[in-house]
Amino acid sequence: MSLMQINNLKKSFGQLEVLKDISLTVEQGDVIAILGPSGSGKSTFLRSLIDLETVDGGDIIIEDNYLCKDGKYQPAKQRRETLKKMGMVFQHFNLFPHMDIEKNLMLAPLCNKQADKAQLKKEALDTLRKVGLEEKLHEMPGNLSGGQKQRVAIARALMRKPDILLFDEPTSALDPELTGEVLNVIKDLSKEKMTMLIVTHEIGFAHEAANKIMFMDGGYVLAFGTPEEVLDRSGNARIEAFLKKVL
């Protein structure tokens, strides 16, 4: 059984149909880069997978649990349970500015009674070490660079031991010289077989780190396959025009 199954998602904002018919199967260990021109519905699609957007139709099945079935959502408590193994990293990091890094990392696991405090303190340090920021344990988020903030945000998501991580343009708010450190952390995660869906504009990174590319345009999936299939020899005029613009 696949890790995540998405069938025929539909979503409109008023008159504007953002998602017209999106289906996707995610297997364990997949790293799927979601590409496409702006306004193609990439972010809306990703956000709907973790209940930040409400879709109008279709199914979202995560590890055999329905988040929504035919556009009808499960009650809030059940949705929270279904999404327990999902994590998300945002374009603007969204760290909690009033807490130091350690508290940022420990808050959710403490609230969800994942483990006792001593154990979580240890995990926080270990996780921070993984993203190369153990010396920032007691810094406030405001004192970090953008790249460091995003690495902390990834560490915070990892603290919940997710099976699936979603990234919504994780490097778009960063200075060009800081994107590398974040992309390297994501690459390390892919080596550990973390399942990830990444909305990005970094074509080179997508080619290198993703095993599948989903190309969206106008609310549809235009192409889905390996990076070679989608980026190198799709033969699709829309995709080639897009690549010409961004490369």
């Binding site: 973790i50 999404l83 994590g87 959710a108 609230c111 969800n112």
Partner: peptide
Amino acid sequence: GQYEAAKVLGLN
């Protein structure tokens, strides 16, 4: 974004 981060981290 603070509400969204709290939500995806499973806070009630």
